[in-house]
Amino acid sequence: MASTPIGPSASPGPSTPGGPLAKIDPALLRIRTIRFGQYDIKTWYDAPFPEEYASIPDGRLWICEFCLKYMKSRFGAGRHRMKCKARHPPGDEIYRDGAISIFEVDGRRNKIYCQNLCLLSKMFLDHKSLFYDVEPFLFYVITEVDDFGARFVGYFSKEKRSPKDYNVSCIMTLPVRQRQGWGNLLIDFSYLLSKKEQRLGSPEKPLSSLGALGYKNYWTLAVYRYLESAPEKIRLEGK
């Protein structure tokens, strides 16, 4: 499906309720831009890719939007595109609503995909520390489906067995997909999973700056929606 690529300037920078985060000098980043599907996206932080990726042409990494394999060049990405048969994340599709689809991916069964996903997200999350030890986690990948396949939008991960009932360990939406409601949908889905598991559910603490902003926005909207149809003289007891 042809569309016009969006340049790096369309990738919003990190921000917090109190203002922008301290930006890392792009010259210090080993990878300054990723080519992801039709998008060129400026990276915000460094990620621990193998040493051979320390010096790549123009500081640009090419990533397959379906299997998340990363490559050094346009040529390599073109060859991969001709051979790659993936059209959606591995794992089970557990939710579908029109063009929106969510896949549950097991870190043990799909180790390489989940490791690549963690490396991708590190370039946009300042506090992310999990990269290769993915086996104890489940990853919930949200996609937008078109005639070609299920295109990656974002994800959240959670521990398979969390003693504190955390329902989110890490959450990320691609910068070019932010401010479109995808983050709220991911958060809402995490609470629906907790409800199905008959757990209270809560994101892992402490929240990152962007995470705190996302949850504040989610709960603000949730309270407004409740108040729209709530009875008069609401009491917190029993709610």
Rank of each mutant, 00 (worst) to 15 (best):
G19Y: 00
L21Q: 10
L21K: 07
A22I: 12
A22Q: 15
K23H: 12
I24Y: 01
I24F: 05
P26Q: 03
P26K: 05
P26E: 05
P26L: 04
L29K: 13
L29Q: 07
R30L: 08
I31F: 00
T33N: 15
T33S: 10
F36K: 02
F36C: 05
G37L: 07
Q38N: 11
Q38E: 07
Q38D: 12
D40N: 12
D40P: 12
K42W: 08
K42L: 14
K42I: 15
T43F: 09
W44T: 10
W44F: 10
D46Y: 04
D46K: 02
A47I: 01
P48W: 06
F49A: 01
F49V: 01
E51D: 10
Y53G: 00
A54D: 13
I56V: 09
P57W: 04
D58K: 15
G59F: 09
G59I: 05
R60I: 15
L61Y: 00
L61D: 02
L61F: 05
I63E: 04
I63L: 06
F66P: 06
L68P: 03
Y70D: 03
M71C: 04
M71N: 00
K72E: 10
G76Q: 12
G76R: 07
G76F: 04
A77Q: 10
G78T: 10
M82W: 15
M82R: 11
K83Y: 12
C84G: 00
A86D: 07
A86N: 09
R87F: 13
H88E: 14
H88N: 11
P89D: 10
P90I: 03
P90L: 08
P90Q: 08
D92I: 13
D92G: 13
D92S: 11
D92C: 09
E93Q: 11
